[in-house]
């Protein structure tokens, strides 16, 4: 039995923070995020920063794959474009304000998102997956070229700049945390809001039934491309923060493996659900760390056993993705839902 909801106008019904539990949860989460930089050690802050960056990218991917129903195996390319744009910009303007870099990266990645999205007007499903995968290979190919080496470092990779925030260089993970996490929160909320009104509703309609969406007045051309642009811009933003966060980048960092990892985070968390990217990214980025610890523990620091680590991590990842598809196709969010349903109904029913 669900306890009644009391609302006096439709505005209240349209709200999303409509139960006390949700309000409380949001406040607690914000407080936790504020506390982490003061209680976490450097390693934990490294993980936290990395997770926040990935969350941005996966939230973006969710807009395209989860909500619009278009497949992409090429989002690593947008990540790369964001990161390399940042590096290139800082060569000319060493102290560029990070938010400006961020916006330029998003525009650049968004423009390429537009180009990647053009095939989506003609091809669907698998064909689109392979088209985006191809585009990813092509983008990385150009980044590796010698004639762009002065900007990109070519195949040898390049060192990345630090962000300057009003004259302070952000060096420690703690300092960077305060740049990354607020941006992640704002971008997360923006994406979540999209699906509360006209724009996001149109995307979901395209996912559910593109022909009837079009006949209801939703321009497929317009919305599919915008969806591509948004998700690419999110990955571009993640790329910028990635460049600020890590000391160097290589073209290989952004290949198919990256694109697939982003997808796995999304599937593990739950596609087309706002909390999915958060749950999925935390799980997927924590697993290798746990494995690493386990490997270290079992091999008692024996270095020769460490060579087994990377194949085992690959196998675990592969099995996890398949396991989710078979046993929990809606991702971690559906476990979360079951938990809350249980809490809501307790003690009246199970």
């Amino acid at each position: 039995m669900i306890i009644g909801e009391y609302k006096t106008d439709y505005g209240q019904d349209e709200g999303i923070w409509n139960t006390w539990a949700k309000k409380l949860g949001f406040v607690v989460a914000l407080l936790l995020l504020l506390l982490i930089p003061f209680i976490g050690n450097d390693y934990q802050l490294l993980m936290a920063g990395q997770i926040a960056i990935f969350v941005i990218a996966v939230v973006g991917l969710n807009v395209l794959v989860g909500y619009t129903g278009l497949m992409s195996l090429g989002h690593g390319a947008f990540f790369a474009l964001g990161a390399y744009t940042t590096v290139a910009l800082h060569q000319f303007f060493p102290h560029l304000f990070p938010l400006i870099t961020l916006i330029i990266s998003m525009v650049v990645a968004g423009f390429f998102g537009f180009l990647f999205g053009l095939p989506s007007l003609r091809v669907k499903g698998l064909y689109l997956a392979v088209a985006t995968l191809s585009a990813n290979f092509i983008v990385l190919f150009f980044i590796r070229q010698d004639w762009l080496e002065h900007l990109t470092g070519g195949r040898g990779g390049i060192e990345t700049p630090n962000a300057y925030f009003f004259g302070t260089e952000l060096i420690t993970n703690q300092q960077k945390y305060f740049l990354i996490v607020p941006i992640a929160i704002v971008m997360f909320l923006f994406a979540q809001n999209l699906f509360r009104s006209r724009f996001g509703r149109a995307l979901i309609a395209i996912r559910d039934n593109d022909h009837s969406a079009e006949i209801l007045g939703i321009s497929l051309f317009n919305y599919k491309l915008k969806s591509f642009v948004i998700s690419a811009a999110y990955c571009g933003a993640a790329g910028t923060l990635w460049a600020y966060f890590f000391p160097a980048i290589l073209p290989e960092d952004f290949g198919l493996n990256m694109s697939i990892t982003l997808l796995i985070c999304l599937v593990a968390g739950g596609m087309g659900r706002s909390l999915g990217p958060i749950f999925g990214t935390i799980l997927i980025l924590m697993v290798p760390e746990l494995l690493k610890m386990g490997a270290f523990y079992f091999s008692e620091g024996n270095a020769s056993a460490q060579i087994y680590f990377s194949p085992i991590r690959d196998i675990v990842f592969g099995l996890m993705i398949i396991g989710f598809l078979i046993f929990e196709p809606m991702g971690l969010v559906s476990i979360w839902d079951r938990f809350w349903r249980f809490i809501n109904r307790w003690p009246f029913a199970k």
Partner: peptide, 23 residues
Amino acid sequence: HSRLKSGLFDSGIYYGAARREEI
């Protein structure tokens, strides 16, 4: 859909134009 106006940024910010239109 085709009678409404709020676009990408209105929708993402929600509070303001998009919310008014929605209600």
